[in-house]
Write a protein that binds this DNA or RNA. Structure first.
Lengths: 248, 248
DNA sequence: ACAAAAGTGTTTAGGTTACACCCATGT
DNA sequence: ACATGGGTGTAACCTAAACACTTTTGT
């Protein structure tokens, strides 16, 4: 590995390492938790599924790099909530040598992807369940991305309990049932609609009525809510008391 | 910044960055939360207090680098629990240029430090309170270490609620009062000794009686406990129900 | 009228808080 | 004997789980 002759001022013991960002992009579609994956075109792991990501450029922050890679690989500026997850490496990750990867977590509504099939990178939503079930056999994702995905899913599960991050999976306006579907998909549990409704609408600083209602579906129209206006970042909203996931 | 001509196989767009580890080393002494700080001898920020840390070597993991830097700067192999905190940078952190820093969190009993005063680095425990109070005026720590410290303290506070990490601040055997002192120092609250005792001893998978008791102090001797034997890593123990910190 | 989903009220069980009280030791 | 902290019991309160019930729409 090269030494720091290119970075004047740093001590000669400083090693330079390649730094990448990887993104665990989660969404809820059709009541199921899904993750954004790309098909790798190059070695190593050519043909395998992997998390979107790439190398950090010298003049950008880590979060900017994550957002840029997402935009490049999906073709759209991704909506939703982006936060840092944790950092992996640099050993035993990439057969080419030591690489540090700063993983990020994106929680977003199911946004459209450019029709896969051109010569662009193949990128699509995949159900999370089969990727994490240990019974499924060997490695299903490239590098250590299976572990990073597991860490990302666990982070998302934990954060739904005590923050307003579930709203990041919804559009700007949503019903209590929409929100409950997010909790049920991420936690993989069934929640009582009546108790959930009382808890969600009763938690101060969480939801705000828009005044509008849904129409067209079967059954009574539902009131539309948005994230409380005081909250800029849904990840910063502290739910007190928290919405606890069931033990089972 | 240099390109990756030294790392064959990596694409030419990959930038190499200096990667450091910094450690927020917390302990509880005399009922107060304290942090391990070093006095910087070199520019930048010569003379200022900083978190211990240094550059990652090319052939070690991030956690190994954190443990090595701690051992080098304190002169002893640090006990306690070490985990990754989060990653900062690379922009606007170091006047010498872009640097990525992977911060770690150490929770440990108050271990002895080599008598400061030789030609070694000056390293000592400092009260956390004054370093984080915003009223204290300007920057008290080098680089962005004040923010990293704040993040580390917040992480420690949160983890005491739902994990057995408070035991990492104690020695191998401790009384319930010792453990309560940890919670009171980290959370900066007063807890009811009777209710805390019931909660701590009644939480399954948390504490285990050694059979021994203290002696010598005033008052009735206290039973000595250790972390439940089933737990290898106190950070992995899930307290259910959690020990919640008071609202105030 | 009926089905379906939204939303409210009520009961009950379990956990937390506050505090009265007893226990075991040093002085 | 008394002070000091360790440890147990208990009643009031609070929250959440379970579920009966009402409301409002589409068909």
């Amino acid at each position: 590995m090269s030494r720091t002759d290119a970075a004047p001022g740093l001590p000669p013991t400083a090693a330079l390492l390649p730094v990448t960002v990887d993104v665990v992009g989660l969404t809820v579609r059709a009541g199921v938790l899904q993750v954004l994956l790309v098909r790798r075109l190059l070695e190593p792991f050519a043909g395998a599924l992997a998390l979107p990501g790439g190398f950090v450029l010298p003049d950008e922050t880590l979060e900017a790099a994550a957002a840029r890679e997402l935009a490049e690989e999906t073709g759209v500026a991704p909506p939703g909530h982006l936060e840092q997850l944790r950092t992996y490496g640099p050993l035993d990750r990439d057969p080419r040598g030591p690489v540090v990867s700063v993983a990020h977590l994106l929680l977003a509504p199911a946004f459209g992807l450019p029709a896969a099939g051109g010569d662009a990178v193949e990128v699509a939503w995949h159900d999370v369940g089969p990727l994490l079930s240990r019974g499924g056999g060997g490695r299903t994702l490239a590098f250590d991305h299976e572990r990073i995905l597991a860490d990302g899913v666990e982070r998302a599960r934990a954060k739904l309990e005590y923050s307003a991050l579930a709203t990041a999976f919804c559009g700007p306006e949503f019903t209590v049932a929409d929100l409950r579907a997010v909790y049920e998909a991420v936690w993989d549990v069934q929640l009582d609609p009546r108790n959930f409704h009382r808890k969600a609408t009763g938690t101060p600083g969480f939801l705000e009525e828009t005044g509008r209602t849904t129409s067209g579906g079967t059954g009574r129209p539902a009131a539309l809510y948005r994230l409380a206006a005081a909250a800029q970042d849904p990840g910063a909203v502290v739910l007190n008391p928290p919405l606890m996931r069931p033990d089972a």
